[in-house]
Nucleic acid binder design. Structure first.
Lengths: 227, 227
DNA sequence: TAATTAAATTAGGGTTACCTAATTAAAAAA
DNA sequence: TTTTTTAATTAGGTAACCCTAATTTAATTA
């Protein structure tokens, strides 16, 4: 029996581990992420350990076991399918989909999920550019990397973002930067690593290194020299 | 703050009152309906009273207040919109939609509901023939009545069912009786009130009074003489 | 009406998911 | 290496929901 809360804890552990590459996820991180206090998290971690979904100790933090990862990836799958559906079929904006998908991801019906996935054309990536795991929990490959690693002169295409906050997504909208848009790195300021970019309508915009780290791109020419 | 459980209690009270016309709903009825025990129901009723969603006393049972009814009708609205959507847009069968809609009805997003409702063409009735309340909680009119009240010779059209159990819906499917199908009452057996019906492909079938009570029809000719 | 049956209620628990306030242990800084 | 700070843990508590086992109250039936 997995409740939606359990699903949320496992998803949180997956996403936190995924974000900062160091697979170890601390109770404090989870507590911040889920907006609860750490004793609450500890309590739940003990249950998840007992159920065999995670391992936990103070030094390595929480880690998903294969069965826990399977559940987490299934929720991620559902979330991203719903996001895509809301965006493509129901005309929700890039910034609106997340919140509704947070609810829809817990609807338990494989058949419904299959129909929705069919309807959106079985894509590999969601409207944020995030990969949609397949039913077996395998992620499609892509060589996305942060825009901040581009060199001067790089021509690349926006494939996603690694931050999904509304304020960040709105910032991108204001900058006229969207999914699948082409960007050219005109200049890199070596002092603060801010970038001067040319966007799709040939506008020139300035972007901080902080923002550039959250934008995932792919170079248009192979071996273009980017890090 | 209304949780999905609260929504379910209010919906149950609404539906039970709606079924048997006598608006009073007893704790025992609710307990059976929601598959919990009566002390659990009593406890929840006390909370709902405190929140102003219902009134309750031993003699009149539980009764929705206007604010409680508003919530209940909103859930009913969502449920029926989702059922219609699943049936019409995602090709689920008549018998499959209920269970999934039970989950989807608790998704909290007016905007999503609006889009889905648009998508199905803003109908007044769901695939079971049940009326979809509008946003203000008003129900569309219809003069549906049980088939069991038909007189011999009555020509009528199936507008809905008042029982949604899978076994009953499957029975109808086997009888080749579906929504919007025309029926002719060929004969009524006065011993047990069973009906001899002619269905859409001119088949003659026999139907018990019990089943006929659950089928909602409308006479094709006005003032045809049916009770 | 008295006896029986059924429904409503009260009493007393259990679990889950939260919390605050200590306390202990680890990490970072001085 | 002490001290300070931060993180993890333990202790103890609350609220929502659910339960079983009485008990009371109402409704039937004999």
């Amino acid at each position: 029996m997995k409740t939606y809360r359990e699903e949320n804890y496992l998803k949180a552990i997956y996403q936190l581990a995924d974000q900062d590459k160091h697979t170890s996820v601390s109770p404090t991180d989870i507590a911040h992420w889920l907006d609860v206090k750490s004793p609450t998290v500890l309590e739940k971690l003990a249950i998840l350990v007992k159920k065999g979904y995670i391992t936990y100790n103070k030094f390595d933090g929480a880690k998903l076991t294969p069965s826990g990862k399977e559940i987490a990836l299934n929720i991620v799958r559902r979330h991203r399918i719903w996001e895509t559906y809301l965006y493509k079929e129901l005309n929700f904006s890039w910034t609106e989909v997340h919140e509704i998908a947070e609810q829809l991801e817990h609807i338990n019906s494989d058949k419904l999920m299959d129909r929705i996935y069919d309807m959106i054309g079985k894509p590999d990536f969601d409207p944020h550019g995030d990969p949609i795991p397949n039913k077996q929990g395998r992620l499609p490959k892509s060589d996305r990397r942060p825009l901040s690693k581009s060199i001067k002169g790089c021509k690349c295409v926006v494939l996603g973002v690694s931050e999904h906050s509304e304020v960040f997504l709105n910032y991108l909208t204001e900058m006229h930067i969207g999914l699948n848009d082409k960007l050219i790195v005109e200049q890199i300021n070596s002092y603060d690593n801010s970038l001067k970019l040319s966007t799709k309508n040939k506008e020139i915009v300035l972007m901080s290194s902080k923002a550039a780290q959250q934008i995932l791109v792919q170079c248009i020419k192979p071996n273009c020299g980017c890090k």
